[in-house]
Nucleic acid binder design. Structure first.
Length: 266
DNA sequence: AATGGGACCTGCGCGC
DNA sequence: TGCGCGCAGGTCCCAT
């Protein structure tokens, strides 16, 4: 569930509250989430280091450490970072020198934690398409031009553009008035421009509100983000469209639940 | 190249 | 009340 706005929110929270802290001890309660290196090495690499810098690439958090390595965290569906932690339900706890701790929680155990010498060499990172805020309208149009696939799965393709997931793809397409089943190539110039602008606008708004708390996402404080109150279509199957009152439909696209207004989105 | 399906997991809500 | 089932969606992998 955490997409670009949620991960960016956690990144900013970490920057404000955790940056400069020293990790004194790491407790691993479920080794499944430690993907590299071994659990013992993972603990050893992190013990006694200072968190120097916090970065985000797509939906991935990167904590640069004083030993030159990086703790790379992909929250996937249900991962959470909570500070101060209480240790309940946590898969991994990072104890800090101030006596507090950060809990890493993950109900479904999809998340991935790694300590790497160079996070830039991670295959997933290398394959990422550009961040939405790093491209121009012209570049975006050129990217779409060669794609025959349906627009919604394309927006969620991290090698095409990075950071957009199922929820924001639905919201962005609604606000652009584009049917999620349309072929990318078939979009008019005006539609491409609307889409480009709405991607940036929706992501910016969502960051402003601290992300969307549907399912498990919470901010570092453990409190929810407030953007779900501003959703127009996601999760609204059977309810009236907020613009035209037509019943919102849910179909499956690329194996994912896809919400849209059949009247507003052409 | 695009598409569909399954896999990884757990907890929730539903129908019976 | 209790149980089985489908579903949630980020990413990878395989088959067509």
């Amino acid at each position: 569930m955490p997409e670009l706005p949620e991960v960016e929110t956690i990144k900013r929270d970490l920057e404000r509250i955790i940056k400069g802290s020293k990790i004194t001890k790491v407790s691993v309660y479920n080794p499944m989430v430690i993907r590299y290196p071994s659990v013992e090495e993972f603990k050893k690499e992190l013990t006694g280091v200072i968190i120097k810098n916090i970065l985000r690439r797509a939906k991935v958090l990167i904590l640069e450490l004083s030993n030159g390595k990086a703790l790379v965290i992909h929250l996937k569906m249900t991962g959470q970072l909570v500070y101060p932690g209480d240790g309940k339900n946590s898969r991994v706890t990072f104890h800090l020198s101030n006596g507090q701790s950060i809990d890493f929680n993950d109900q479904r155990l999809f998340a991935e934690l790694r300590v790497l010498d160079d996070w830039r060499t991670l295959k997933f990172i290398q394959g990422l398409g550009p961040e939405p805020f790093d491209i121009t309208l012209k570049q975006f149009k050129d990217m779409l031009k060669v794609k025959k696939t349906k627009i919604k799965p394309l927006l969620m393709d991290q090698t095409f553009i990075s950071g957009i997931g199922n929820l924001y793809a639905a919201e962005v397409l609604f606000r652009s008035g584009i049917d999620p089943q349309r072929r990318a190539q078939s979009l008019s110039n005006q539609e491409k421009e609307n889409l480009f602008n709405e991607i940036k606008k929706v992501l910016e708004e969502a960051i402003y509100y601290g992300g969307s708390s549907v399912d498990n996402y919470v901010r570092l404080s453990g409190k929810p983000g407030e953007y779900a109150a501003h959703h127009k279509v996601y999760g609204r199957e059977g309810k009236p469209c907020l613009a035209c009152k037509t019943v919102i439909k849910r179909i499956s696209l690329g194996g994912r639940g896809t919400y849209f207004c059949p009247k507003c989105q052409k």
